[in-house]
Write a protein that binds this DNA or RNA. Structure first.
Length: 970
RNA sequence: GGCCUCUUGGCGGAACUGGCAGACGCGAUGGAUUCAAAAUCCAUUGCCCGCAAGGGCGUAUCGGUUCGACUCCGAUAGAGGCCACCA
């Protein structure tokens, strides 16, 4: 009978589920088996269901998992749901259903779709981030962050108790900004005489001050920060969720306003997150993206004194400020990556939000400064970005002293300087920075060149930003940029006016959302808003049951409406629950750990099991998570590592990004001048005014539309419209992302119904390299269906058709030599390509071997069995069915992978191309073990080679081992 | 604007470290089978010249290195991705 994929696939999916065929063994069951943790990025179960892009990576990891099981490896291959998040909540609000309901429905649909693809997950390990049994541990990890600080000496997270200890012992002191630093006297550093010691000792602090210091040190802390408030979504968003001043979800405008928010101190880990990238087997491009995101810049901090303020300025500032003015001279710290250009600094710019702006501004300029600051504050990020070309800013009326040459330079404020990076202030060197240049031009500020190019002249109408030779800079003149930087930093440090410094672009992670559908914080606040952790025994802290979970429309989160839930009375008094929830990223930061031990209710993961399975050996997913998920997860993992909860410093050893599947190509016809990419179109019609041509591309038969070619180029014949044959046209094709609006979305359900899951899997793997972006083309799928049908006919037979072969598998071990060689080559290639994730070429080899079998009268059993086993990871349903019909009673899932015989790969004779001056002229057949001299002899006398050598002298005879022969003649 | 990646037949793609360009699939053309169709099987299929034998040209464009370049180097053009006033 012909191959019935629907019945066969259903049968084996059922079989795998009931027999738990793909159960991963716990370490104590596994014995000496090697382990492999093969992980997919778990999906957000959207209402739209699976997209044809999902199965690309899922099939890839499934093939690897199935292959490894057959190699005798204990494989952990799990799946779960990243189910908290905005879309479910938005949908819930729109339809007035609880997000739990829609989430459950969506998960059921996703599970059905994944099972219909025959993916070999261990379904007993399924996780769901919205399940209280799961988010209990998400909350537990947040508590660990809350109860830890980043130790500046050991550069790792430690419990807060340890910090209090260090402070009590006066190993640490408290800096003015409440940060904790090494006690300089403990280090044996002598205090510079006359300098005022500004650090404070722990015992000098009042209890309230002490708690402020502690709270400011936590890895999870609250802060009043300017946030991206999105009125459309009624929530605050992370910088990463704002694109061009609009929300990533929904595209609503986003504005900035200060709010109390939860932050995670990812910046403490910037250096380690950067350094540890090197050892990971990740795509270079992705590592580069993370490096750019972390954004390490090496340079110097330089102190600029404020030029003696006008007396009337002091009159205006508050009494407290005036008191401080007496004790210390005002100075502004700037960060620069080009300290070598310090002599070229002709003005200074502060961010509009810089705290010193008030102190510097002269009374005559105050009004203009205030107006500018108000204007900037009201601007959304989007507006701020819109006009990056035109620089704006205002003079403060104040001046600063360039410490290197005691020059008095004007101080401006401008929005091109950002408060969030460096020190929020810059020295401006218009000769060597594009932004400073355009600002200086606009405000008529002098431009002084202090670096000249290695050769040639610096441009007159733009900044010279490249490296060169220092000039006009006493002390570093003549030095190339790199050396000049070093020398100048030395000079700064000697004079005590600056120091070498490293800054990062990475900001702390804004971790709270004003939504309902997320993990509640396991935190209560006292009347003053001070945070306290709740006991771990009270976890999970469940979301309150609410009928009205709509945003309040104000920054007050929806949970604030659950009054009974919010109020907590205890022996210590009345507390209020934190009403923010965690962002969607929270659950995905550690899910890979939960798969290891998903049912454990005493720990987030058992320590022994964690040591056995971690790290993840292969992680496959889309590049859209290159910086967000992958950076956040690495951060959490490192914290857990520091605190001794996990055994590896990095979670994901090998990571691969699968390419996106684009929609089917769309075609347009153009007249062409060049005869490149020419193809012919049979025109079916042109519209009345002749502007649009529609037709079919010759060869592909695909519908094309295009601009009208030329007047008179299109003729009408009996058959219809045609293009004159001498006319060259160009058919341009373009593929776009699949999207509802374009109407080019392909639903996996349809494909599986029409072609079967095996064919679908094969097609997606055969389209091209896993990492490449590839256009979908439904027309091509049939090739894989034909392949599977041919395999079925070869190994099972088709009794229904006279013309078709009966089963021809015969009981013999004798395989004809050529076929045997092809089989061993296929075993080798399929194994190697599968390990290298080159599924397209592995399949090509299988197809080739099947084509060889198609010409045979009978197929020896060893060949039939090996072929079935090789096919199994790719097309598991049909392979299991054939395996059974070959007389086996157990699933082939753990059947040993075939081995190839090295000695059977090579032929006795080999064919060598013979080139003359690099052009192939003939081929010779020689014994595989022939001597070089004999080969050259044979090549030289080859029939089609001789004419090219006649009358010429052979200058060189080249023989490349088993590759080719080349004669160089004059 | 910066950083990164890519560009091979009518289409998807192959060629792992420089060594026979176009494996394999789709499409197309011709044939077999069939009353006919579907399905299947066989053959051809980069372009140009030639009846043929054969020859020439070909991996976006131009140039270089090499006995030999899709592969390495330089420039140009085009496409895609990420970041985007980060001092």
């Amino acid at each position: 009978m012909p191959y019935n994929f629907t019945a066969v696939e259903k049968k084996w999916q059922q079989h795998w589920l009931t027999n738990k065929t793909f159960r991963a063994l716990d370490p104590d069951e596994a014995g000496s088996m090697p382990k492999a943790y093969v992980l997919d990025m778990f999906p957000y179960p959207s209402g739209a269901g699976l997209h044809v892009g999902h199965p690309v990576s899922y099939t890839a990891t499934d093939i690897v998992s199935r292959y490894l099981r057959m190699k005798g490896v204990n494989v952990l291959h799990p799946m779960g749901w990243d189910a908290f998040g905005l879309p479910a909540e938005q949908y819930a609000i729109k339809t007035n259903t609880h997000p739990r309901e829609t989430t459950e429905r969506n998960i059921a649909n996703f599970r059905r779709q994944l099972q219909m693809l025959g993916l070999s997950y261990d379904w007993d390990r399924e996780v769901d981030t919205t399940d209280p049994k799961y988010y209990r541990w998400t909350q537990w990890i947040l508590l660990q962050l809350f109860k830890s600080y980043f130790d500046p000496i050991d550069r790792k997270a430690k419990p807060i108790a340890h910090l209090i200890n260090e402070l009590t012992n006066e190993n640490f002191v408290v800096a003015p900004d409440n940060s904790v630093v090494l006690n300089p006297t403990q280090e044996g550093l002598e205090q510079i005489s006359g300098e005022v010691r500004i650090e404070r000792l722990w015992r000098e602090l009042a209890p309230e001050e002490q708690r402020e210091v502690i709270d400011a040190s936590r890895l999870a802390y609250t802060d009043e920060v300017p946030v991206n408030w999105c009125p459309g979504l009624g929530t605050v968003l992370a910088n990463e969720e704002v694109i061009d001043g609009k929300s990533e979800v929904g595209g609503f405008p986003v504005e900035r306003r200060p709010m109390r928010q939860w932050m995670l101190r990812i910046t403490a880990y910037a250096e380690r997150l950067l350094d540890d990238l090197d050892a990971l087997q990740w795509p270079q491009s992705l590592k580069e993206m993370q490096r750019n995101w972390i954004g390490r810049s090496v340079g110097a901090e330089v102190e600029f004194d404020v030029a003696s303020p006008d007396p009337d300025v002091i009159g205006k500032v508050s009494a407290q400020d005036a008191a401080e003015d007496e004790s210390e001279d005002l100075s502004i710290s700037v960060f620069t990556t080009r300290p070598d250009t310090l002599f070229g600094a002709t003005y200074m710019v502060l961010a509009p939000e810089h705290p010193l702006v008030d102190r510097i501004t002269s009374p005559t300029h105050r009004e203009a400064i205030e107006a500018y600051r108000t204007m900037i504050a009201g601007k959304s990020d989007r507006d701020r970005m819109a006009d990056t070309k035109e620089k704006t800013g205002v003079f403060t009326g104040g001046y600063a002293i360039n410490p290197i040459n005691n020059e008095k330079i004007p101080v401006y404020i401008a929005d091109y300087v950002l408060m969030g990076y460096g020190t929020g202030a810059i020295m401006a060197v218009p000769a060597h920075d594009e932004r400073d240049y355009s600002f200086a031009k606009k405000f008529n500020i002098p431009i002084r060149q202090v670096v000249k190019p290695q050769s040639g002249e610096a441009p007159m109408d733009s900044a010279f930003v490249d490296e060169g030779i220092a000039i006009n800079s006493p002390g570093i003149n003549g030095l190339p940029t790199a050396a000049a930087k070093e020398k100048l930093i030395e000079m700064l440090e000697e004079e005590g006016i600056g120091r070498g410094s490293v800054k990062f672009k990475l900001r702390d992670w804004l971790f709270s959302r004003q939504r309902y559908w997320g993990e509640p914080f396991p935190i209560v606040l006292d009347a003053k808003g001070n945070p306290y952790d709740i006991p771990e025994s009270e976890l999970p802290l469940k979301l309150p049951e609410m009928d009205d979970f709509k945003p309040t429309g104000t920054p007050e989160p929806p949970l604030s409406k659950a009054k009974d839930w919010v109020r907590v009375e205890s022996d210590d008094g009345v507390f209020f629950r934190e009403t923010n929830v965690m962002p969607q990223w929270a659950g995905s930061c550690w899910y890979y750990l939960r798969y290891i031990d998903p049912k454990n209710d005493r720990r987030f993961v058992d320590a022994q099991k964690e040591r056995y399975w971690m790290p993840v050996d292969l992680y496959v997913g889309g590049a859209e998570h290159a910086v967000l998920h992958l950076l956040y997860a690495r951060f959490w993992h490192k914290v857990l590592f520091d605190l001794g909860h996990v055994s590896t410093p990095e979670p994901f050893m090998r990571l691969v990004n699968h390419g996106m599947i684009l929609g089917e190509a769309e075609y347009t016809v153009f007249e062409t001048e060049q005869r490149t990419a020419v193809s012919v179109v049979d025109v079916e019609s042109i519209d009345e005014d002749g502007a649009t041509v529609t037709g079919r591309q010759k060869g592909t038969g695909r519908a094309v539309t295009g601009r009208r070619i030329d007047e008179g180029e299109v003729e009408r014949t009996k058959e219809g419209f045609v293009l004159r044959s001498d006319h060259a046209i160009r058919v341009e094709s373009r593929s776009y992302k699949m999207s509802k609006s374009r109407g080019n979305v392909v639903n996996p359900d349809d494909i599986v119904r029409d072609y079967g899951a095996d064919t679908f899997r094969l097609y997606e793997m055969y389209m091209g390299p896993l990492e490449a972006q590839k256009p979908w083309n439904t027309r091509d799928i049939v090739g894989m269906l034909r392949f599977l049908n041919a395999v079925w006919r070869n190994l099972v037979g088709d009794e229904e058709s006279e013309n078709h072969r009966k089963t021809r598998v015969v009981e013999t071990n004798g395989i004809p030599e050529a076929l045997d060689r092809q089989m061993h080559r296929t075993i080798k290639k399929v194994g190697e390509d599968t390990q290298g994730l080159r599924f397209n070429t592995a399949l090509a080899e299988l197809i080739k071997l099947n084509n060889e079998m198609t010409g045979l009268a009978e197929i020896p059993r060893p060949l039939a069995e090996n072929f079935t086993l090789l096919l199994a990871p790719f097309a598991p349903h049909i392979a299991e069915e054939i395996w059974e019909r070959l007389g086996h009673h157990k699933s082939l899932a753990r059947r040993p992978w075939p081995q190839y015989d090295q000695s059977k790969l090579a032929e006795a004779t080999m064919e060598l191309p013979v080139q003359v001056n690099g052009k192939v002229r003939d081929k010779i057949s020689v014994p595989a073990d022939a001597e070089e001299a004999a080969i050259l002899q044979a090549a030289e006398s080859a029939e089609r080679v001789r004419p090219w050598l006649e009358g010429k002298s052979i200058r060189k005879r080249l023989y490349v081992q088993k590759k080719l022969v080349n004669f160089v003649v004059a």
